[in-house]
Design a protein around this nucleic acid. Structure first.
Lengths: 220, 220
DNA sequence: TCTTATTTTTAGACATAGCTAAATCCTTGA
DNA sequence: TCAAGGATTTAGCTATGTCTAAAAATAAGA
């Protein structure tokens, strides 16, 4: 069994996310930007992760995550998202406050703890941001979803997740009344700037820039 | 404001416990035994804790915890005990399984987290082993209590805490049906070896060695 | 008191994880 | 094609926290 340190775990999780986004390889600078550490530190870490075979690393040419690495990353993500559910559902944190705390909590080493936590939470399938929670074996039941700005005029759907998890963005969504689970309908689309007008829960109508709409994921 | 690293926090907590037991100073070897690290490592740590003024440290002569140190230790103890309550009450851990996990959880840095956790748990005053939980200001409402073997023949009381928190001891208590809150009555005392016979909840009678009885704390 | 035994500290090593500064490699444009 | 510029790596430093082995200080017994 592989063992990773806290820092290695964090890097691997970041690498997994980067790998999911763009399909090609991931560069040292990509990781550096994501982790907010210097490229020099990243090089060192990549060497270690390469030795532990969770990534394939070729100096100067970036990396690819391995199957083994994906499995490991999914376990870390599982822990993180379960703790996020706990913080929001039980401790009444708002969805923009949970990230850092969940990060620390997910480093606690105990298989039993996560199993019991999952059971206590009622085996949730999605975290407060709508992202799917992998099961014990790393399987993810992903929902088909697309950015709100790609919906046709007049079509309806349900908000299921957000791409951007920054506090600023989530606070904005709270303000305008957009939340995971909300029913929406596209009332108007402006080709010129890509902005849209959305009806939320058949009640409230709001305008959104293309930028905002692109960060809201919808299931039809 | 003082900041301590994880390891420093652990050492300080251990030192606090050692200080509470015997009133005189605490030696390097005492700490070494408690922390299960080598005396050489302890010396180094004591120097650091001395510099941060949470203990008064004189080389070769042991240490005394300072007022500042006590405050800090009580905050760590508070976090630890609140997490223990969470693990036992909510996640259904048994009282002999919680120590290590609670130790890791209590290192998560977030004031809000502990406040919300305390609220969620309903402001518990005692942990699963019967030890009091300090409040936000470090105040402890201790219950007057004494070892079971010091009770007079025929007297009654209620089990409120245990001294020994080892898995072996707690499993034994589970087996014989002794738990925090149980009503007990001293049915017999043997002067020769200090053993006692105890009636639990007016139902079950059991024999206990002096060693066991000395580790059970009772409120009369 | 003096020698021995115990306790404690120091010195030096290792591992983790970050940094800066300098060196090296790759790519791209003239 | 080759030199400049950007990306990446290496080297060396810092800090934390552990260890072993050796040195130093204290305590205890004859």
């Amino acid at each position: 069994m592989i063992t990773l340190t806290h820092a290695e775990e964090n890097y691997l999780k970041a690498i997994y996310h980067l790998s999911e986004g763009g399909k090609k390889g991931v560069s040292t600078n990509d990781v550096s930007a994501e982790m907010k550490t210097k490229p020099a530190s990243v090089s060192d870490m990549l060497r270690k992760l390469g030795e532990k075979e969770v990534i394939e690393y070729r100096k100067y040419y970036g990396l690819h995550i391995t199957e083994e690495g994906k499995k490991f990353a999914l376990q870390t993500i599982r822990k993180h998202r379960l703790w996020e559910v706990f913080l929001v559902e039980k401790l009444k944190f708002s969805w923009d406050e949970v990230h850092e705390v969940a990060d620390e909590l997910s480093h606690v080493k105990s298989r039993v703890l996560i199993q019991r936590l999952e059971e206590y939470l009622g085996f949730p399938k999605f975290d407060p941001h709508g992202d799917p929670i992998p099961d014990e074996y790393g399987d993810v039941r992903a929902r088909p979803r697309l950015p709100l700005n790609e919906l046709d005029l007049g079509s309806t759907g349900q908000i299921v997740a957000v791409k951007d998890k920054s506090t600023a963005f989530l606070k904005y969504l709270d303000k305008v009344g957009a939340y995971i689970g909300a029913r929406i309908k596209v009332m108007d689309k402006t080709e010129f700037d890509g902005s849209v007008e959305i009806l939320i829960d058949n009640k409230k109508s709001i305008f959104m820039s293309k930028d905002v709409a692109g960060n809201i994921l919808v299931m039809q």
